[in-house]
Design a protein around this nucleic acid. Structure first.
Ligand code: MN
Ligand code: MN
Ligand code: ZN
Ligand code: ZN
Lengths: 158, 158
DNA sequence: TTCTAAATGAAAAACTTTTTCAATACGGAA
DNA sequence: TTCCGTATTGAAAAAGTTTTTCATTTAGAA
């Protein structure tokens, strides 16, 4: 169990939760994930570490971890959200459109923008939620190669 | 049928879709909604205009309207998203935490912030998605009154 | 009015999430 | 280390959501 895992486990303990085999498996799977996972995906991956792990436990553990702020729902452009390990504090995510790889952006600069919004709408702003979509470096490369290959084929077909 | 409705209906026609009674009912219900609606909520409200309307048709119509950009999924802080009529162009939403009233913010100013993100992550940024949570003017007032009433009760109980 | 393809609702199927409950296992107390 | 109470578990069932299928209806062009 690495340092990050230790910290997460300690958080659970600190809030009076037991540190069980299923929960360790779920933490491990989340720590290794490079993209937000649905409960079903998470079960599949966590079963590498606990073959018996039930889906119900995944739901229950995500609920606890979300309350403790250890995990965050990350909304995806298509369909709904997946869950990803959260860095403490306010963060945002950049999600790759092609492979769903996710990078966390710590901190943000929307203060002035949000003041405008408050003034214009009469709302008291209590929070915000920003998801950024893009193409990761790998996928940019992959798409360029695809385009190149397609061009070659087109020439051959002439 | 008001002007806004006419425009929406015309959009459907322009893309080769038929303008049916169920679809008009759905448009009408969306036009009157002050908050994002789930498919089930939308069915209930649209049945005021077409009592027979089936839930399947709501799903199918939302799918078409989302493709045409007439409707947008609005992600909510709790659980998942609802659907709201979309203003053309890039917009964001401010959603009231208490009554879910939604105001659309047309235009946004995240250009510089997004450039930073691109530089830091190596991602090409293709889009973003910002939801703002807050309290609408009405709910601010309502909550203040509640607090006041509670205080009165506390005094009476002494 | 006639005709045809698009669209519809009911029913079934597929999927997801929550609830219930008896069995299990974590971790504090001895 | 063993023992014990209770938090936690997985299976099964229930509840809820979304998609598929199909016979029937309807919009709208001709
Ligand atoms: Mn969602
Ligand atoms: Mn932010
Ligand atoms: Zn990628
Ligand atoms: Zn409100």
């Amino acid at each position: 169990m690495n340092a990050n895992m230790e910290t997460l486990a300690a958080q659970l303990r600190a809030h009076g939760h037991k540190l069980t085999r299923p929960r360790r498996a779920i933490l491990q799977a989340l720590a290794e994930a490079a993209k937000p996972l649905s409960p079903a995906e998470l079960q599949t991956r966590a079963r590498v570490f606990d073959a018996e792990l039930g889906l119900v436990t995944v739901y229950r553990t995500l609920e606890i971890m979300e309350e403790l702020g250890l995990v965050r729902p990350v909304h995806l452009a298509d369909g709904c959200h997946g869950y990803a390990l959260a860095t403490p504090g306010h963060t945002h995510h950049v999600v790759c459109q092609r492979c769903h790889a996710v990078v966390e952006i710590v901190g943000c600069d929307l203060g002035v923008f949000l003041e405008h919004v408050a003034a214009r709408t009469g709302y008291t702003i209590t929070g915000h939620w920003l998801e950024i979509a893009g193409l990761c470096a790998d996928c940019q490369r992959a798409l360029q190669e695809e385009a190149y290959t397609r061009e070659e084929n087109d020439h051959a077909a002439e």
